[in-house]
Computed example of a mutant assay.
Amino acid sequence: MAEVTADQVLSKLNELDLHLSPEINYRLETIFLEIEGFFVNKKIREKFQLVQWIEPFLKEVLLEHEQVLFVSRGGRELDCQRVIFALTNLRMLCMHQTGNHAGCPYWTIYYSQIEALKNTFLEHPKFYFKDGTKLSLRDFPKQELPTLHDVFEKSSQRFQEQELDPTVSQSRENICGNCFKIVSNQGNHCEACGANFWSPFEIGIRSLFFPLWGSFTIRPFSFALAELSTYVVFGLSVLVLEAKSNPVLVALMFVLFHMTASAVGYKLTAKGLYLKEVPADSAAANDQFDGSLNPDAPTRFS
């Protein structure tokens, strides 16, 4: 794959009448990797749409000198939802893809908290975090793997050279979906804006009594509706095939189904913050550092 320059990418975007927000500092040549070839216009439009989906979030969380270097997406094993992520010169930002936009939960991971990026045997990128947690992204575009590794390694090395080590409560810090400030790993309440989040216990109990209750509470409507269809098909199939001949087996299968749904709902909610209640007045001051990678710049690391 031939390397491209920022000017070449910008010229191609203008040619296709695609315009990214001027408020965000992008490194275009590592986001749009191709500008020539078969179906390249389609690929550019797809990547542009992906970037455009997350621009409202980026405008809220990016710092003054923070630059977006890479944007892509992949699927998680647990919930089958896609995760959109962006690498900047300071950190990794992650969010769920919900329909045609990015949504809760949101995370931020500084490079000092990422121990390694490796490929699985199926060539999926897998991030290893300092606190022992991991993030594996299935269905990641294989042609983007070399760029992902290159951007990550150079950014991580520069971060280490500047001896930056932000104080965190966990490697993958949660971001409030209301005010977009970091929420420490302490509970289910945002001190900055007063928003409350669903607890793993609440979603686990709801899913135990009725699996779709938990899904409709925190998942996108279309995703929960698909789960409802699966549940109805499963229930009818079990009842038709086994209800008369083996009612005990039917009851056991439903119990196991509900317990599995409860466990999945619990684990899903434990990995991110899903908004439950938002106060009417939720303004909060931004006290983040300016993102300049300058050791003398004001920081919140100490």
Score class of each variant (00 low, 15 high):
F180T: 02
F180E: 01
F180S: 01
I182R: 13
I182C: 10
S184E: 14
N185C: 13
Q186E: 14
G187H: 08
N188Y: 15
N188E: 09
N188V: 09
H189Y: 15
H189C: 06
C190R: 07
C190G: 04
E191G: 02
A192Y: 14
A192F: 12
A192K: 11
C193A: 04
G194I: 12
N196P: 04
N196H: 13
F197W: 01
W198I: 00
S199Y: 09
S199W: 07
P200V: 00
P200I: 00
I203S: 00
G204M: 04
G204V: 01
I205V: 15
I205W: 09
S207V: 04
S207A: 15
L208Y: 05
F209Q: 00
F210Y: 15
F210G: 01
W213I: 00
W213P: 00
G214S: 06
G214M: 06
T217K: 01
I218K: 02
I218L: 07
F221W: 12
S222M: 10
F223D: 02
A224G: 11
A224F: 09
A226V: 05
E227C: 08
L228P: 05
L228H: 05
S229A: 14
S229L: 13
Y231D: 03
Y231H: 13
G235E: 12
G235R: 08
S237Y: 10
S237F: 14
S237V: 11
V238L: 11
V238G: 08
V240K: 07
S245M: 11
S245V: 10
N246L: 07
N246S: 14
P247I: 07
V248G: 06
L249F: 13
L249T: 06
L249K: 10
V250A: 12
V250R: 03
A251T: 12
L252Q: 11
M253T: 04
V255W: 04
L256H: 04
F257Q: 05
F257K: 05
F257L: 06
H258Q: 02
H258P: 04
M259S: 09
M259P: 10
M259A: 14
T260N: 14
S262D: 07
A263G: 05
Y266N: 03
Y266T: 06
K267V: 09
K267C: 09
L268H: 08
L268E: 06
L268I: 11
L268F: 12
T269S: 14
A270I: 02
K271T: 09
K271Y: 12
Y274L: 01
Y274R: 01
Y274D: 00
L275R: 06
L275W: 08
L275N: 07
L275D: 02
K276P: 09
K276R: 15
E277V: 11
V278S: 15
V278I: 12
P279C: 07
P279L: 07
D281P: 02
D281N: 13
